[in-house]
């Protein structure tokens, strides 16, 4: 990795395509396009526009950073699958960064990181400094009860959010990382089959 690596970060975990391009720790381009759907068609051309704006090409990149959620299941898969394809083709690392790690970036002391989920629920994680907690899915009252008077971090502007994805990945780039994988928190909705096998008579 060169001293000031080109890092391309992107996130589609919420109703947006968010992209940040950093040269080392310097932000070069950052763009957020809001959209409820259509991220799968919009993301790649948007990344190419961002690269062009900085006057570089795919081949100049040193690191891919991708938001792994939690958030919209389809959205996080869109970015993770694209990041994996890019990493394979460019032979550079792709590092997955969770929304909790992104929110907690640069924060000292005990902190709840909170991300809105569907149906009035929230994804939340409680960290005490470097000791990170277990990701939870909570209802609004549960969240209120748990977080109490403690510091909560949520609703970060998408520009800051995606830029922090790049910054967190830079902090991890010195060691081997697993391939990016979505952080769902919630298990898939699936009911076991309601057909019971017949008794076999002998």
């Amino acid at each position: 990795m060169p001293p000031d690596p080109w890092v391309l970060a992107f996130d589609t975990s919420a109703a947006h395509c968010a992209v940040a391009l950093l040269a080392g720790k310097t932000r070069r381009v950052c763009r957020v396009d809001s959209m409820v759907r259509g991220q799968a068609e919009h993301l790649m051309p948007m990344l190419e526009t961002v690269l062009a704006e900085a006057g570089i090409t795919w081949r100049d990149l040193n690191l891919i950073a991708v938001g792994t959620g939690p958030g919209n299941f389809t959205g996080i898969r869109i970015s993770v699958a694209a990041a994996r394809g890019l990493a394979l083709a460019l032979a550079i690392p792709a590092i997955g960064v969770s929304g909790f790690d992104t929110l907690a970036h640069g924060q000292a002391g005990p902190l709840w990181s909170v991300i809105p989920a569907r149906r009035g629920h929230f994804y939340a994680r409680y960290d005490e400094g470097p000791i990170t907690g277990v990701p939870l899915q909570l209802s609004a009252p549960e969240l209120d009860q748990l977080t109490g008077q403690k510091l909560c971090r949520t609703d970060v502007p998408a520009e800051t959010f995606v830029e922090n994805i790049a910054r967190v990945s830079l902090g991890r780039a010195d060691r081997a990382q697993p391939r990016p994988a979505p952080l769902y928190v919630r298990p898939p909705d699936a009911a076991p089959s309601n057909i019971t096998a017949p008794i076999l008579l002998t």
Binding site: A40, L43, M44, L47, E48, W58, F73, T74, R77, I78, S79, A81, A82, A83, R84, G85, L86, A87, L88, A89, L90
Partner: peptide, 20 residues
């Protein structure tokens, strides 16, 4: 199934862009 199709399409787009 759209979730699966999307995963393949996005990986292919990454490969296509990265390998030109």
């Amino acid at each position: 199934l759209i979730g699966g199709v999307l995963s393949g399409v996005m990986c292919a787009k990454g490969l296509s862009a990265g390998a030109n």
